[in-house]
């Protein structure tokens, strides 16, 4: 059984008069001890998903769907249980460590806080553990006395990682853990996370807009576009052999270093993602899709298994949300009645 199972997650922000459907039916699973990469452009709803996993969204957000963490639905949990699950069951390394740490408290105290909260540990034990955690992330013990502003960006992110590991969680959610850092440090931090997660046998969900980084680190990839997962599958095959035109564009926007094929074709993706408050009819990617067809404006494709026969070996467990993946459509060329409820036919086609 998957440690994390997200089913048809929908998050809508109330903003003034209007509503922003930031996540529109996203789903994915994460096996124990495995690493899932979530990729997608800015604004596609990655952080919203991450925050939803521990019910950390602001009150302006309406959340629907199912988030099963070790079999328990996070969305219907009682408060007490939820607080116990937070950090001990799953912890988060946030996007910007500068603002995610409290500026007026020593980093050692901030790392110790969840330990004191979730476990019966004596102060001496806690401070020893804080020291050990700091050493694990490559900081000397005495740095526990530092305030966040006394550390560099990379050191702060190391503190965040130490903090996230403090209660030995089973799942680590890393939301763009390196965006605010310069390139050299980014690589260091990614290696650090990768190593620690492996050593502790922790499952990880890593969010990034850089598909190539995720492909290198993770076992599986989920590519998000406009609030949905549009492609999902084993990391290598998704990255090397994209089935969804958006994934294909993402892989060429971040070429694999040393790969001459992608070098020759380094085009980015033209245009902007759709306004979440006013998505286009049919496939949300249509306005930017280089291979869009007529039916793409009437059919709203949902994640669909990619036929193993069509992609060859090693493609088991792949899925993409594109009309070109739907078997009956490929043959008939019409918006056929979907075989499973998770392919939604829009009103226009009825």
């Amino acid at each position: 059984m998957n440690y994390l199972e997200v089913k048809d997650l929908r998050v809508t922000y109330r903003a003034g008069e209007g509503e922003i459907p930031a996540v529109r039916g996203a789903g994915f699973g994460l096996a124990p001890g495995s690493k899932l990469g979530v990729a997608g452009e800015s604004g596609c709803g990655k952080s919203t998903v991450a925050l939803a996993l521990l019910r950390l969204l602001p009150r302006s957000a309406r959340v629907q769907g199912e988030i099963l963490l070790d079999g328990e639905d996070v969305l219907t949990m009682r408060w007490g249980r939820l607080r116990a699950v937070r950090w001990a069951g799953a912890s988060i390394v946030f996007q910007g460590a500068m603002h995610s740490l409290n500026a007026v408290r020593r980093v050692g105290d901030q790392i110790a806080e969840p330990i004191l909260l979730h476990e019966n540990a004596t102060p001496g034990e806690v401070s020893r553990r804080v020291g050990r955690l700091l050493e694990q992330v490559g900081l000397p013990r005495w740095r526990a006395k530092a305030y966040p502003h006394e550390l560099s960006g990379g050191q702060r992110q190391r503190v965040m990682i130490a903090m996230a590991l403090a209660c030995e969680p089973r799942l680590l959610i890393a939301d763009e853990p390196t965006t605010a850092l310069d390139v050299m440090i980014q690589a260091q931090i990614l290696r650090l996370i990768d190593r620690l997660v492996g050593e502790h046998g922790i499952s990880m969900m890593m969010i990034s807009h850089d598909l190539s980084v995720l492909a290198e680190t993770c076992d599986r990839l989920a590519v998000m576009y406009a609030g949905r997962v549009v492609e999902e599958g084993p990391a290598d095959s998704v990255f090397a052999d994209a089935r969804h035109p958006y994934t294909a564009a993402l892989s060429s926007a971040f070429p694999k270093i040393g790969d001459p094929e992608s070098r020759r074709n380094p085009h980015g993706l033209p245009g902007d993602p759709p306004d979440p408050a006013d998505p286009p009819s049919g496939c949300a990617f249509r306005p930017r899709c280089p291979v869009a067809e007529e039916r793409c404006s009437t059919v709203d494709p949902v994640l669909w298994p990619v036929e193993p026969a069509a992609v060859g070996n090693g493609a088991a467990g792949r899925a993409a949300a594109c009309v070109r993946m739907l078997p009956e459509m490929r043959s008939a060329g019409v918006a056929a009645e979907p075989a499973e409820p998770n392919v939604a036919a829009p009103e226009e086609s009825r």
Binding site: L51, L54, L56, P58, R83, A84, V85, R86, W87, A88, S91, I92, F94, Q95, G96, H99, S100, L101, N102, A103, V104, R105, E113, P114, L117, H118, M163
Partner: peptide, 29 residues
């Protein structure tokens, strides 16, 4: 809306503690 308050909540702190330990010391400045 500050991020460090989200961190504090994510750690599993009760709302009152998030306020007392994290929000108030910063707001007092």
């Amino acid at each position: 809306g500050a991020d460090y308050l989200t961190t504090a909540r994510a750690k599993g702190l009760r709302d009152a503690l998030v306020l007392r330990r994290h929000a108030v010391p910063n707001a007092l400045l």
